[in-house]
């Protein structure tokens, strides 16, 4: 369990984190989302006692990080895979870490096997690809068999197999009752991994809720229906109160009703259904909607500078948006 209360961090006149309060509960994967510069990394560093809050507090299992004896046994973290001495071997890196928290030496080889680095353990970490460095960082986080895990962009540099692996690993850790807190920019990935979300922008909390609720609230839900008797269904739905219906390439998209309700209407009319799928908005859409206004570098949207002047006509600017 991680609890932040009124957490604030100022650097000079910039407020990086602004009265942030949230709770990360055990037994679930909690995603930590926000645009660049929203204060995610600063918050993670404050959780780990690396940075000192200007105001407010963040507690790990009710205690400050600095007061945890053998902290690696409570909380394991991967903040940056490149935080390794490049001329030290992967095994030596984990050995000193294990030693610092009195963990048995064979644990080093166990975690190296677990992340698939057993065969390159004797190689210098500086020669590792980003994906291998990432695995080493994950090994370090798991070293103390902690109940709480923090990951900052864990899939960075991993290949598809590695991405799948880390996703399964995080879900399994949560299923074992651990607290898993993951920050990532890859929303299509987070949509598959996170049960809960903490969303921040410009250092402030934007929302804390379950992933499903976040998406639902921001983009609503719709139901897609296909039927050989589409017109009859359309008439029936149009007369149902609260329903919005529009046609979309041979199907109906119904808003304001659940798929259960649409199914009941169809059954009452004796209409055969060929499809009845609830359509969920994407986490990305929901996120962009909730955080617009909290973004640091906006790229130009119009595309008017896409072309070398004179080299091309004006045809391109409509694009596919």
């Amino acid at each position: 369990m991680i609890e932040a209360v009124g957490l604030t961090k100022r650097y000079g006149r910039t407020v990086a984190v602004n009265e942030l309060s949230f709770t990360v509960k055990p037994g679930r994967v909690t995603g930590f989302l926000g645009p660049n510069g929203a204060g995610k990394s600063t918050t993670m560093r404050m959780i780990l006692g690396l940075d000192r809050p200007t105001a407010g507090d963040v507690l790990v299992d009710g205690r400050h990080y600095r007061d945890l004896p053998r902290p690696l046994r409570h909380i394991g973290a991967l903040l940056d895979a490149k935080w390794v001495h490049p001329n030290r071997t992967a095994r030596a890196h984990l050995r000193w870490l294990a030693k610092s928290n009195n963990l048995p030496r064979q644990r080093v080889d166990e975690v190296l096997e677990l992340v698939g680095l057993g065969s390159v353990a004797h190689r210098n970490a500086g020669a590792f690809s980003l994906g291998m460095a990432q695995r080493l960082g994950i090994a370090a986080a798991l070293l103390g068999d902690p109940q709480i895990l923090l990951f900052d962009e864990p899939v960075n540099g991993l290949d598809p197999e590695g991405i799948h692996w880390i996703r399964q690993l995080m879900k399994r850790l949560a299923a074992e009752g651990r607290t898993v807190f993951v920050s990532s920019h890859l929303l299509s990935e987070m949509a598959q991994t996170a049960d809960e979300l903490v969303v921040i922008g410009r250092g402030r909390l934007i929302d804390q809720s379950s992933t499903a609720r976040f998406v639902e609230r921001a983009s609503g839900t719709a139901v897609r229906v296909r039927s050989p008797q589409l017109e009859r269904l359309r008439t029936a739905l149009a007369s149902t109160s609260g329903a919005g219906v529009r046609a979309e390439d041979g199907a109906l998209v119904v808003t304001g009703l659940t798929s259960d309700q649409v199914g009941e209407v169809a059954a009452a009319q004796g209409v055969v259904l060929h499809e009845l799928s609830p359509q969920r908005g994407s986490l990305e859409e929901a996120f962009i909607r909730m955080t617009s206004g909290a973004v640091e570098y906006h790229a130009e949207e119009s595309g008017e500078h896409l072309h070398l002047r004179g080299a091309r006509g004006a045809e391109g600017t409509e694009g596919t948006r």
Binding site: R45, L50, P71, D80, W83, V84, H85, S100
Partner: peptide, 15 residues
């Protein structure tokens, strides 16, 4: 330790 940021890992292991 500062250059390769291992100091952060060290302070994480022993605050």
């Amino acid at each position: 330790e500062y250059r390769f940021n291992t100091i952060k890992v060290a302070f994480q292991a022993e605050p």
